[in-house]
């Protein structure tokens, strides 16, 4: 693997920002470095070769974004988190609102939004919830819309679903076609998939619950702070924010506008405008 330096990373992120208006300048250095190295290796390119290719072949930017962003996810990742959602958080929202809105920010290939749909369906309230699932990577959004997953990933998804103690079996929700698990599209009827950039994009709606798990770990603290402000703006007062089990808000300026609802599962509640 070719060793690249921080100067190279700055050169690449500055170039992409100027030419394509995607801002990776405040991504966490170590993972951003690995992602870039991975692309260079995959495409057999040098740093200058990569910039040349991005200059001459504008369509390459989509492939670049798809490889750069981390799209490793699972259905019902951290089953205990999903149990808390079902047993505490969603019922708490329902106390005040019969209809509500959820935003999956950085939804990647859609496993989490699909998990949420299944959870809501099993609670009998899928029709009452409007879900928004956003990502900056259009290629991955297409994959999310298709609700089609490789069978080799299903073993883990099934295990997680069993630990989540779902009402039935995960197989109730999909058919096997050509070696893929194709989920019932009715589950996604209330999901609005759209391209949205957490870094440069604006808040676009108000939500009762935002899930952004294991997304901000790719950002540095400056950017985490900015994104938390956008989440704060996008939440109704007393709305919930869920982040990854090993993420923390405590380094952010806006942390004092939230309280911890569940420290183990990293679920927060906005208490101050």
């Amino acid at each position: 693997m070719q060793d690249i330096d921080i100067v190279d990373l700055k050169k690449i992120s500055e170039f992409i920002f100027q030419k394509y208006q995607y801002d990776f300048r405040n991504y966490a250095m170590s993972s951003f470095k690995r992602r870039v190295q991975r692309i260079l290796e995959l495409k057999k390119l040098t740093v200058d070769g990569l910039i040349k290719k991005l200059t001459e072949t504008p369509s390459f930017i989509n492939e670049f974004l798809d490889e750069l962003t981390v799209n490793v996810t699972e259905m019902f990742r951290d089953p205990s988190f999903w149990r808390i959602m079902r047993e505490e958080i969603i019922p708490a929202i329902l106390l005040n609102h019969k209809q509500f809105k959820i935003w999956h920010a950085g939804c990647s290939s859609g496993e989490e939004v699909l998990s949420m749909s299944i959870l809501l369906k099993e609670m009998g309230i899928l029709d009452s919830v409007q879900l928004y699932a956003t990502d900056l990577d259009t290629t991955i959004l297409e994959r999310a819309r298709s609700a089609t997953y490789s069978l080799k990933n299903m073993e883990l998804n099934e295990k997680n679903y069993i630990r989540f103690q779902g009402a039935g079996s995960l197989t109730d929700y999909y058919k096997v076609e050509n070696g893929y698990a194709v989920f019932n599209k009715d589950l996604l009827a209330n999901v609005n998939f759209r391209k949205h950039d957490l870094v440069l994009g604006e808040a676009f709606n108000k939500f009762d619950l935002i899930l952004c798990r294991n997304v901000m770990i790719y950002f540095n603290q400056t950017l985490q702070n900015d994104v938390l402000k956008k989440f704060h703006e996008s939440l109704f007062k007393y709305g919930y924010l869920a982040i990854g089990s090993k993420e923390s808000l405590i380094w952010c300026d806006y942390a004092n506008r939230f309280i911890v609802v569940n420290n183990e599962e990293k679920i927060y509640k906005k208490i101050k405008d």
Binding site: A28, S30, S31, V72, N214, K246
Partner: peptide, 21 residues
């Protein structure tokens, strides 16, 4: 390093986690 995460150190002397492949 926590379960199911990669653990890195950043230049500012703090940790970062990742769910990469």
């Amino acid at each position: 390093a926590p379960a199911n995460y990669h653990l890195s150190v950043e230049l500012g002397n703090n940790f970062s986690l990742s769910t990469e492949e």
